[in-house]
Design a protein around this nucleic acid. Structure first.
Length: 285
DNA sequence: ACCCAGGGATTTT
DNA sequence: AAAATCCATGGG
């Protein structure tokens, strides 16, 4: 299957920059699992070439996940025209936001707290190996694939058992979230239809979900375009790029983030995040 | 206000 | 070779 594209799509930047944790680069391309579909992706001229482990008759699950129908230029046009944004845009051509499954996204980001991307990957992968459903047998490239484990399955696991996936103090948080979702006390499918403030408040009811993780879920799973996850990298980017040499308090930076970047602030945030992380190797402090 | 909890790759000593 | 650092939530 080949998905045509109107404008740039950088798979490496998009799949590997900390919004999703199960993609890895193989000889054949970016390999991962979307829902129950093992899939391998590579750039192909002005499109994306997708190979699945099993025959597939409709592709909405993939185009929805990759957001290939989004008009990126329209989004970028709403960004503020200032020097930091220009630099971030120039360094991250084709960076996109994915539209992920809410449960996988929520669970992954509960596991992400005080972890670095490399370790989050390891935890998520061992969780999938241990509790995910094996996908049907297929060719050698897809043979070991597993789905992300359901809330119901994780709700049956014990805290001690979960800890063998190296998630440490996050185990009770993940367990509580799984149980709440499995029991229907939190309806993830319905959150996306609510107002973002309300969805955010309900996510933050869960132990282990603070403002940053809630915003990640709002942005990466529900597609609320102005959710703005403020992590240490984005704070660093805001301080360095917009207020160099000044000591700005957190509350002020929050207000700046909420007002400066427009209707697609979350998208702008991802560009700043990616830009500052790549810039760290090139010297400036 | 500070300190700890889990932990493996990365960086610094 | 050993030690410090990264990272975001909750609890004491």
């Amino acid at each position: 299957m080949r998905i045509p594209l109107e404008s740039d799509y950088d798979l490496e930047a998009t799949l590997n920059c900390g919004q999703a944790f199960r993609w890895r680069l193989t000889e054949r391309g970016w390999t991962g699992v979307i829902g129950t579909h093992p899939v391998c992706l590579r750039s192909h001229g002005r499109g994306i070439q997708a190979e699945t482990a099993h025959p597939v008759s409709e592709w909405a699950w993939l185009t929805e996940y990759l957001q290939t129908d989004l008009n990126l230029q329209e989004v970028l046009r709403t960004f503020p025209e200032d020097e930091p944004m220009r630099a971030a845009l120039a360094s991250c051509r084709g960076l996109r936001l994915l539209r992920q499954d809410p449960w996988e996204c929520l669970a992954s980001f509960i596991l992400s707290s005080t972890k670095q991307i490399v370790q989050i990957r390891q935890i998520v992968e061992s969780l999938c190996q241990r509790y995910g459903e094996p996908t049907p047998p297929a060719g050698p490239d897809f043979a070991r694939a597993r789905t992300f484990p359901s809330p119901a399955r994780l709700a049956l696991a014990g805290e001690t058992e979960l800890r063998t996936c190296k998630m440490g103090f996050r185990a009770p948080y993940l367990l509580a979230a799984a149980q709440k979702v499995a029991a229907g006390q939190l309806d993830l499918a319905r959150l996306g239809a609510q107002r973002p403030e309300s969805a955010r408040a309900q996510l933050m009811q869960l132990p282990g979900v603070g403002p940053k993780i809630a915003d990640c879920v709002l942005l990466f799973a529900y597609g609320f375009p102005n959710a703005f996850p403020l992590d240490v990298w984005v704070l660093r980017a805001l301080r360095r790029l917009y207020f160099p040499g000044r000591r700005i308090r957190l509350a002020r930076l929050r207000r700046f983030a909420a007002t400066h970047f427009g209707p697609y602030a979350g998208y702008a945030q991802q560009y700043l995040f990616h830009y500052i992380r790549n810039a760290k190797d090139e010297g400036d402090a």
